[in-house]
Design a protein around this nucleic acid. Structure first.
Length: 501
RNA sequence: GGUCUCGUAGCCGAGUGGUUAGGCACAGGUCUGCAAAACCUGCUACAGCGGUUCGAAUCCGCUCGAGACCUCCA
């Protein structure tokens, strides 16, 4: 690939695409808000982390040394009723909070593996960083932005706003005056000076299980604090990229910015990246309206929302077809379309991989086909450079695929393709499909070669039958294979077969 | 109600003011013993109304519609 590429990304902080310039040339620090492990992983999480996986992979592909930190939230994230999510989960299941955290962390990791995401460089847990969070609270108090009420510490948003005009609300586009006049009644609001203030340390109640000693009370850290503490610890006071789902922009990320500025005077990240939501039936998934589907249901097809199951890689491909900042609506038809697209791309790759260069009477010139293909290669990488536009890259690969099929079917003279161009697109396809898009082959044919052996035998018998014009036999074989889910594809170069379900 | 984003063909979904996105579906054709696959051709577009411009899907305004956030959520 080219050595000089310009990566542009959409920075939520400024609302526009910017050229990416890392703090230290060649190195990238990226923090992504991970899941709260109080229940089974939500399909929406999968999209977010697949999106950031592709971003991570592309940064690696640009030869950056990336430190990718993605946290596990296992304390401090409260429900509407002011109850800790972890504690609630543990009471319901009669488990220690840490057992709940462990159970769903394992489940989350399993799901990430199923979707073929690369593990982050560091995966810190909130409960493992209580001292760091206490230090951060102290730093905020020391700088005058934290105040105590009955053993809890709150972040003083109005004071912060007065001394740092324009900083609070910048990320999420909030109007500070409105936030400060907000009059909604919420739990624990009575302790705050202003409704917009948020807890950075909460005093524990007798029934709370996850509590720690602090200078102010035995209690637990506020939800937003962990990310500030852990990103600072592993990436520094200011780092390159901070990411997360769109719905975390406010208040979570906005408060992170305030905490960082409020504790040390530095903004946490130069670039904020936000992924968009996964929709079902055109609306955000929501358990309460039954408009939801779990990853397992999506795999098995056991949901009223879809007619059949789809594989993890088909779903990953489905996500690739949309840009990460666009909402993506899950529909049966859309998934079906992605399934076919995924299979076609993988099939194209196999054909490409088996294509031999045409070297004998190659005259060394560059044909129109060569130029068109090289241009498409350029388009694919340019797409990724433009805020990780996987849809554009995929479109370019599809067009290259069209040339590959033409050559494989001898509909286009193989001499049109210079040997070095063929090698180039082999590398490019490999690079995109496996390294950048993070797709993988799913057809699990027997690894011991039994299935290949059987198939070769069967197809050889069929070839003989066809040669003798015994079409009864050949069609019986083809139909029989089709019935067990194997498609036979006759081509000029020979017969190919593929599992279809 | 406030803030923001978006409205692209049968469906999904890209799009930097002037050049075919792509996929799926559909209809013809090539290939095939017949199919499938593949390839070729075709088919439906830029919510509406104004404005800026030589030129707007792209910029601006308004209207209508949708979604997100504002409250736990990726």
């Amino acid at each position: 690939m080219n050595t000089e590429r310009t990566l542009k990304l959409y920075n939520s902080l400024t609302g526009q695409k910017e050229i990416f310039t890392p703090l230290t040339p060649g190195y990238v620090g990226m923090y992504v808000c991970g899941p709260t492990v109080y229940s089974d992983v939500h399909l929406g999480n999968c999209r977010t982390f697949v999106s950031f996986d592709i971003i991570y992979r592309y940064l690696l592909n640009l030869h950056y040394k990336v430190r990718y930190v993605r946290n596990i939230t296992d304390v401090g994230h409260l429900t509407d009723d002011g109850e800790d999510r972890m504690a609630k989960g543990s009471k319901v299941a009669q488990l220690e909070p840490m057992e709940v955290a462990q159970k769903y962390t394992v489940g989350f990791h399993d799901m990430m593996r199923i979707f073929n995401t690369l593990p982050p460089s560091i995966e810190p847990r909130a409960t493992g960083h209580i001292p760091e969070q206490i230090d951060l609270v102290q730093a905020i108090i020391d700088r005058g932005y934290g105040y105590e009420r009955n053993g809890s510490i709150y972040f003083d948003v109005s004071k912060f706003n007065e001394e740092n005009p324009g900083k609070y609300g910048q990320l999420s586009g909030r109007v500070i005056e409105e936030l400060l006049t907000e009059t909604r009644a919420l739990k624990n609001q009575e302790e705050k000076k202003h409704p917009a203030d948020f807890a950075i340390w909460m005093k524990g109640r007798p029934q709370d299980l996850m509590i720690w000693k602090s200078p102010w009370s035995v209690g637990f850290p506020g939800w937003h604090l962990e990310c500030s503490a852990m990103s600072t610890k592993y990436l520094g006071q200011t780092f390159d990229i901070h990411g997360g789902g769109n719905d975390l922009k406010f208040p979570h990320h906005e408060n992170e910015v305030a905490q960082s500025l409020g504790s040390c005077g530095h903004a946490p990240a130069n670039y904020w990246l936000h992924t968009n939501m996964l929709l079902l039936n055109g609306k955000k998934m929501s358990k309460s309206d039954g408009n939801t589907i779990t990853p397992e249901q999506l795999f098995t097809g056991t949901s009223e929302h879809i007619e059949k199951g789809y594989s993890p890689m088909e779903i990953r491909f489905f996500m690739l077809q949309a840009h990460y900042r666009s909402p993506l609506d899950i529909t049966d038809h859309g998934l079906e379309s992605a399934q076919k697209g995924y299979r076609r791309l993988m099939e194209t790759y196999k054909i490409l991989d088996g294509l031999a260069p045409h070297t004998e009477d190659f005259d060394g010139s560059e044909s129109a086909t060569d130029r068109a293909i090289l241009d498409l290669v350029e388009q694919a990488y340019n797409g990724m450079d433009d805020d990780f536009n996987t849809a554009v890259a995929l479109a370019a690969l599809n067009e290259i695929g069209s040339y590959i099929h033409k050559i494989a079917n001898q509909q286009l003279d193989a001499r049109e393709l210079a040997p070095w161009v063929l090698e180039r697109i082999k590398t490019v396809f490999q690079n995109f499909i496996f390294d950048i898009f993070g797709l993988k082959e799913e057809a699990e044919s027997g690894t011991d070669g039994t299935v290949e052996g059987l198939m070769n035998l069967i197809l050889e018998i069929r070839a003989q039958a066809r040669a003798q014009k015994d079409f009864n036999t050949s069609d019986k074989i083809r139909d029989g294979l089709s019935a067990v889910g194997i498609a036979v594809k006759d081509g000029k170069e020979g017969v190919r077969w593929e599992k279809t379900n």
